[in-house]
Design a protein around this nucleic acid. Sequence first.
DNA 1: CGACTTTGACCGGCGC
DNA 2: GCGCCGGTCAAAGTCG
Length: 343
Amino acid sequence: MEFTSLLNTSLDLNTEPLRFLDDARQPKQEVDGNLIGLGRNVTVIEERGALIEELNRVSAENKKLTELLTEVCESYSELRNQLMEHTSKINVEALDNSNPNISKTAASRKRKAESSINNNANKDNIGINNNSNGHSESSSSDEDSSKKAAAREEEQLKAKISRVCVRTEASDTSLIVKDGYQWRKYGQKVTRDNPCPRAYFKCSFAPTCPVKKKVQRSLEDQSIVVATYEGEHNHTNPSKPETATTSGSNQNLTLGNVPCSASIISSGPTITLDLTRQKPSQENTRSASRGRFEAPGIQHYLVEQMASTLTKDPNFKAALAAAISGKFLQHNNNNNNNQTENL
DNA sequence: CGACTTTGACCGGCGC
DNA sequence: GCGCCGGTCAAAGTCG
């Protein structure tokens, strides 16, 4: 995916920097039309000198901005590469663990598994690795296989659980996470560890879709809504193409035009969407890139986010416009110089 | 009138 | 076995 293709290049180029183009042309016309008086020629030469000086200054500025732009592009491709690396790693892991069936046993252990995910994901991984070695202390092969099967089921379940944190206005009491899918609320409960009620949703787009979602406000930060997804959608995303897949369990996030920061959890990492910020700072973008991106879709989402952030930043637009106009100016400057020499 | 939300009741797992 | 707790069901209510 080309970075440039993501940028909204529909910039208004009729801005200040381009005024120099007209300014540069104006004296030339004067020169063409009024070469009679010598005193006037002196004025024209003075003006030209000032203009050339101005052009040089703008060119230098343009050079700086071009360098800055190059830097941004470089860091973008660097981040993209890191993301690709991470994504491919996750895909390999997902393939290793692929088994679409979640057994009733696994479902019955949901709470146990979930708590272990929440409390200590790393410990779980160690446990899984140990089990996957296939060496059990138990002498009974049946027991051994059932233990392994149980561990595998747990692992599969965990692989299908992802958590998304959405930052909303604290005053917003609705537990709605717009992720592009259709959800039907089937329950709400106040849990012991959190006074904020937890809402239970089922995917209602396809009647056979097994995906469930739990949404609850964070205890630490009430402005953060935590959505936990379980299962995989067995249908395509009903939302528009501007959505971004966010996790291994194919959760899609409709970000629309809202810039936000992100990090992810898929049995560990968490997606955080900051929907409160209209103009995310560079720090947001950086923190997003620092996060652990373990889902293939987040790549597209991040790219969109970066593009959106850049195109919405008036400073960036102005800089880009200046850079582009600078190129014109340089070209024009060269032409003018040639024409002057010809005079 | 159908789709969706709300909310109290119920169920099953887990710890003591 | 009992109570607690999270998750689910389903009837009633609401909305477009």
